[in-house]
């Protein structure tokens, strides 16, 4: 070989580089564009009020105490519905994941009932339980129950069998195998299910409150829409967004604490 050359670099690109400022800048730009569009009359404030007026409506809701009345009702329904659905789903999912007979009976039932949109059952639940709180809580609980059951038994199925065999090889009692191996092994999958069911719970909460409630974020949004108070309507949507964000943050912290070994 007479001459030497550098080997050209060919490995660039296709790497995700964090650009933290970009997201904030895009967000600020979008809001500024929105504000300007309304102020200059390019968009009618009746159909889309400016971000400033939404903030003003939000502040008024906070100071008048209306916000807490609606949020309090919504949180109450969500907490009850989600807890009941989650406890039931965990119990059924655990039974399907661990016992063959429960799986043979429960799995076809879950598969058949899971795809039904649970909000479609609200009129039936109102007939059974009345227009009060029970029917709304039951709708949320039903919506949460099936995904929790599916997440739980799938997570149990995903626990490596060799860990269970290891426990058996050391003569661990069956209860210890479940408590010390199966349950902690399934926990990441169960917690991932919680994230999904929290969103489902929130969607069903708003839908149920729009159908028959005096108080609650869903009811507030519907009333504001009926009165063409779009600034109040969007303030309600902001409330929902903040609520979803807070629930997501709470679950992330719970996950970090429970799965700190990862």
């Amino acid at each position: 070989m007479s001459d030497t050359r550098d080997v050209p670099f060919r490995g660039g690109g296709f790497v995700v580089v964090p650009k933290r400022g970009a997201a904030v800048a895009a967000f600020v730009l979008l809001i500024a564009l929105w504000e300007v569009s309304v102020r200059f009359g390019w968009i009618s404030p009746i159909f889309l009020p400016s971000p400033g007026s939404i903030v003003q409506a939000f502040v008024e809701l906070v100071s008048s105490g209306t916000l807490w009345k609606h949020i309090g009702q919504s949180l109450h329904r969500l907490a009850f519905g989600w807890s009941i659905g989650t406890l039931g789903g965990l119990a059924l999912g655990f039974a399907i994941g661990v016992w063959s007979l429960s799986r043979a009976v429960g799995l076809p039932l879950v598969s058949a009932l899971f795809p039904i949109p649970k909000i479609a059952l609200l009129p039936l639940l109102i007939l059974w339980l009345g227009i009060g709180e029970s029917s709304k809580v039951a709708t949320i609980a039903l919506g949460v129950f099936f995904p929790t059951a599916i997440a739980t038994f799938s997570a149990i199925d995903g626990v490596p069998r060799n860990l269970i065999r290891m426990g058996q090889s050391f003569n661990l009692p069956a209860a210890d195998v479940l408590r010390k191996i199966v349950l902690p092994g399934a926990l990441p999958g169960i917690l991932a299910g919680f994230r999904i069911t929290a969103s489902i719970g929130l969607i069903l909460l708003v839908s149920a409150e729009m159908i028959g409630a005096e108080y609650g974020i869903g009811a507030f949004i519907l009333q504001a829409g009926n009165l063409m108070q779009t600034d109040q309507l969007l303030a309600g949507v902001v409330m929902l967004s903040v609520l979803g964000l807070l629930i997501g943050t709470g679950l992330t912290r719970l996950e970090r604490w429970l799965l700190r070994w990862r």
Binding site: M166, S169, W261
Partner: peptide, 14 residues
């Protein structure tokens, strides 16, 4: 009779 496993079979959370 005690086993030693090929893939160690350790509980990652312990």
């Amino acid at each position: 009779q005690t086993y030693i496993f090929q893939d160690f079979a350790l509980l990652p959370w312990r």
